[in-house]
């Protein structure tokens, strides 16, 4: 039994302590926005924030979660998307879309740390997030666009 704070809400997950956060979200709480791609931190599809830091949720046991968890569902909703999510829509980034929750969570952490990232910053921050559809040019464009809009706001 683990007690977690997810997207600002206290949650109890009735799973063994060694189960990774990814599966507590997906299977314990039916929060399926966070995706399983590899299980070994090699693809980034499961990226969430813990206390604002981007982490691979497949590698963090629920017994070890050290802070407040934010998932893609907590970033924004279809009716009230975050600026970054709206930039993803505006640039028509997704193809299959399966990796994009992780891409967006990684990009959100980047923008929180570096409000106006260079292409080199984006290369550095995003290289752990794999996309088999090859959407990288539009991910890059969406990050730059969101950075600009967030700075204007």
């Amino acid at each position: 039994m683990a007690r977690l704070t997810i997207n600002g809400t206290a949650q109890t997950v009735d799973l063994p302590d060694e189960v990774p956060l990814l599966w507590a979200l997906r299977d314990g709480l039916n929060m399926t926005g966070t995706k399983f791609g590899c299980g070994v931190a090699a693809c980034g599809a499961c990226t969430v924030h813990i206390d604002g830091e981007a982490v691979r949720s497949c590698q963090v046991a629920i017994g070890d979660v050290w802070g407040e968890v934010t998932t893609i569902e907590g970033l924004g909703t279809p009716d009230a998307p975050a600026v970054l999510q709206q930039a993803w829509v505006d640039h028509q980034v997704a193809q299959c879309g399966y990796c994009q929750s992780g891409q967006i969570m990684q990009a959100a952490a980047l923008l929180a740390e570096v409000p106006n990232p260079t292409d080199a910053d984006i290369d550095e921050a995003m290289q752990g997030n794999l996309c088999r559809c090859g959407t990288y040019p539009r991910i890059r464009a969406a990050i730059h666009d969101a950075a600009q809009k967030l700075q204007e706001a």
Partner: peptide
């Protein structure tokens, strides 16, 4: 694309 917002919000 009609699937962009669902895919950008994890829904």
């Amino acid at each position: 694309r009609h699937d962009q917002m669902p895919k950008a919000t994890g829904t």
